[in-house]
């Protein structure tokens, strides 16, 4: 197993959000996590990435044989965990290219690889950026500042393709995208499906899963997985709504 989450409980601001979540995923698979608002989807993604303030009170997460919960946020990234965020932050004063170079080299350094110089970073970024329609002009601008919703999400996927993580978590990547932007992002993601990489696609709506077809679908409600199935489960959810499937046992 690439990722094994067992009986995970997590608390945010003194409130328990994840209440015994169990899930496992093999390398090369794409799993979708669907659930209504407030079910704990974003909390799960933050716990996986190691955000401060998301406290795991019990349970375990094993990633690639490591105890993920003992690793710092940046160590997780260097070991191949990547979270494409629902709301990428804007950082005035740091250009996108500088950010990408700093992040790339920080990860390479952590893995004992040699750093890339500015020229080679630019070459590498350009080579990947075209397919995602990330322009030179965007690279020169301050990180995410003044970017449209679609541009922000494309930049997240560009990072996915640059950092080449083993585990990619896509948190509501479809939110705020029109259909053309969605297709472009989905194509980018599909191009990155490899037998070595696992992807966890977190979404509220089934729409994204028409374009990124999952191997398995998990339904998250009330902080735990309440239903699991193949890709057809997503369609059922779309037809019947969460209320019928996600009802907690009495």
């Amino acid at each position: 197993m690439m990722l094994e989450i067992k009986d995970l409980h997590a608390v945010v601001d003194g409130k328990e959000i994840l209440k015994g979540l169990t899930l496992s995923m093999k390398a090369g698979e794409v799993h979708a996590i669907m659930g209504p608002n407030g079910s704990g989807k974003s909390t799960l993604s933050y716990v996986l990435a190691g955000r401060e303030g998301y406290e795991v009170t019990s349970g375990s997460i094993t990633y690639d044989g490591h105890d993920l919960l003992t690793m710092k946020t940046e160590e997780r990234a260097a070991k191949g965990v990547f979270l494409a965020m629902q709301y990428p932050v804007e950082i005035p004063g740091v250009t996108t290219l500088t950010f990408l170079k700093t992040a790339l080299n920080a990860q390479r350094r952590a893995r004992g690889e040699n750093e890339l110089d500015a020229m080679n970073v630019l070459k590498f970024v350009r080579q990947k950026a075209t397919a995602l329609q990330v322009t030179e002009e965007m690279l020169k601008r301050a990180l995410n500042v003044g970017f449209s919703g679609g541009e922000k999400k494309r930049l997240e996927i560009l990072q996915l393709s640059l950092f080449e993580p083993k585990l990619a978590i896509l948190d509501e990547t479809d939110s705020g995208l029109d259909i053309d932007a969605l297709k472009l992002v989905a194509e980018g993601v599909n191009a990155l499906r490899t037998p070595q990489r696992g992807m966890l696609v977190i979404t509220h709506y089934q729409r994204l899963l028409n374009y990124i077809v999952p191997d398995r679908v998990h339904v998250l409600a009330g902080g735990r997985i309440v239903a699991e199935g193949g890709k057809e489960l997503a369609l059922e959810l779309e037809a019947e709504g969460y209320a019928n499937i996600a009802r907690e046992p009495a």
């Binding site: 955000r51 946020t73 940046e74 990234a77 932050v89 950082i91 950010f99 700093t102 992040a103 920080a106």
Partner: peptide
């Protein structure tokens, strides 16, 4: 912002 940068592998 700190979390975003760290989640990209940049040390604190």
């Amino acid at each position: 912002s700190l979390f975003y940068l760290r989640s990209r592998g940049i040390s604190e």
